[in-house]
Amino acid sequence: MYYKSLTVAAALFLAAGWASAHHSVAAVFGNEIIELTGVITDMDWINPHTHIYLDVTQEDGSVITWELESSPTAMLRKGGLTKAKIIGDGRPVTARVQPARPETGTPYRAYTKRLTYADGHYYVLSAE
């Protein structure tokens, strides 16, 4: 697991090293991968990371908004992706993500691996 996480971290920060490098996502996000299902309500098309907002309805009916960090805009452009494409059509989306480490104090933040949409199409945004 340790080596696997190193590989993932290496891939992520190589992926994020397009211009001049920045910190590793491993400095914020853990190794565990979970799945969330919710509705994407918005996206910040900014650098050095984009941010996707996913509303996840809990069993008691309350809604928690997760902030999902993702690739920089230049990388998303490489895949022809836009903010509108990632937000989708308002139907539920399943997100495979790496949650932030507990010690960061940011319980509902995560790094995005894959988004799968209601019609089955998907975007793999970082190496799984």
């Binding site: 490098a21 590793s24 996502v25 914020v28 650098n47 932030a100 940011t106």
Partner: peptide, 25 residues
């Protein structure tokens, strides 16, 4: 080339390891 989106870091305040990475350029 396109107009660059704003660059706003949101991670530095949450970093729990002083990790860095190689410059692939």
């Amino acid at each position: 080339i396109l107009e660059a989106p704003p660059c706003i870091d949101r991670d530095l305040d949450h970093i729990v390891e002083n990790l860095h990475h190689d410059n692939v350029r």
